[in-house]
Computed example of a mutant assay.
Amino acid sequence: MATPKWRQLADDLAEQIRNGDLATGEALPQIRELTASGAGSTTTVQAAYRALETEGLVRIVRGRGTYVRQQRTRIVRESQARYQWEKDRALLSEEERRSTGVTEKETGLDTPHLAFQATYDAVEAPPEIATRFGVEPGTQMLRRSYRTSSRSETAPIGLISSWLVYSVAARNPALLDSGREPWPGGTAHQLRTVGIEIGQIEDRIGARPPTAYETKVLDLLPGTAVLVLNKSSYSADDDRLVEYSEAVLPGDRHEFLYRIPLDRWPS
């Protein structure tokens, strides 16, 4: 089957964007210019531009034109390998743990090229969180909010909220200090400092339209969904929930990769 003309045009422009022939912020030709040059009908050019916007390569500004969008860092998240890698690093020396982290590993960016922001506060457990942890509503919790971004971009990679039982985190006062973020070795090492080994992690992933706040903060184009990752970490000793987090991730820059070995059939 022949490739539609709008797709050919979109692919040609996408290649120009990716190789730098069309720079960030540069305006794409007006639709009438492309139609006059024989690139296709108005409908063809409009379809190509809409496809480029859906793919996150351009931004269409009504009444002004179509502009090359700054390319966003792409993240491939391989959860099974990621969590084992984090757990193994919890046993390393501080110097080794400081050398790199999971965000650097997944984005391919060095630590100096990343901007980290963490906010901690002590709050009473809302009913949903209390139910998850099996504690009484109102139990004091440590709520941690994270944003990480490339220093070349304004929008964060995602919005993350993490919960720990406050009395558990308080066993190591350093865990109550957001100024120590990014913590070398991440949550796996933080929990190790209070005698907890993570034995199992459960991920639940869904998708939904973003809120107005998420659209603004994550710099989402119209029609872009967010992925919502609910992560529950359980203790290896007694299988109790020790950390719960929710990550809101832009659907245009996150990909989940799973490699699942299957048992052989009996011979």
Rank of each mutant, 00 (worst) to 15 (best):
T154M: 00
S145R: 09
E246Q: 11
Y244H: 11
S152I: 06
R98W: 03
A115K: 12
G108P: 02
R208V: 00
V76T: 10
P184K: 05
S37D: 14
G206W: 12
I60N: 12
T148E: 09
R180C: 03
A115G: 00
L159E: 03
G195T: 06
H254C: 08
G38K: 10
D203T: 08
V217K: 00
R89L: 09
D21R: 15
A118P: 00
A125C: 10
S178Q: 05
L221K: 05
L241F: 05
A169S: 13
R98M: 07
T35H: 01
H113D: 13
I75V: 07
W265I: 12
A174Q: 03
I196F: 06
I205W: 02
G185I: 12
L218I: 12
L52S: 01
V102Y: 15
L142I: 14
E96D: 02
G101K: 02
Q140Y: 04
R253E: 03
D21E: 15
G223L: 07
E243V: 03
W265R: 14
L241E: 03
I129S: 02
A23D: 11
V123Q: 06
V242F: 07
F133Y: 11
M1S: 13
D252K: 00
R89H: 15
G63D: 01
A48T: 02
V68N: 11
Q140T: 15
Y146F: 13
Y258H: 14
R32D: 14
Y49I: 02
I129W: 00
R259F: 15
T119M: 02
T193N: 10
G199S: 05
A174C: 01
M1I: 13
W183N: 07
Q84I: 15
P182Q: 11
V76W: 06
R62F: 12
E128A: 14
A47T: 04
G251E: 07
P209V: 14
D177C: 04
L142W: 10
P156M: 01
A130G: 11
G158D: 10
E33I: 06
I205M: 07
Y49T: 07
A212M: 03
A122S: 13
G101C: 13
R32A: 14
R82A: 12
H254E: 08
T3M: 00
S152Y: 06
V228T: 04
R97P: 09
A122G: 04
D238F: 00
A247C: 01
G63I: 03
S245Q: 00
A169D: 06
A36F: 00
G108W: 12
S145G: 07
A122T: 15
T54G: 08
A130R: 08
V135R: 01
A2G: 05
L109N: 05
H254K: 10
S93C: 13
R259L: 15
S79Y: 13
A48W: 02
V226C: 11
V61A: 14
Y120W: 04
E197M: 14
A125Q: 10
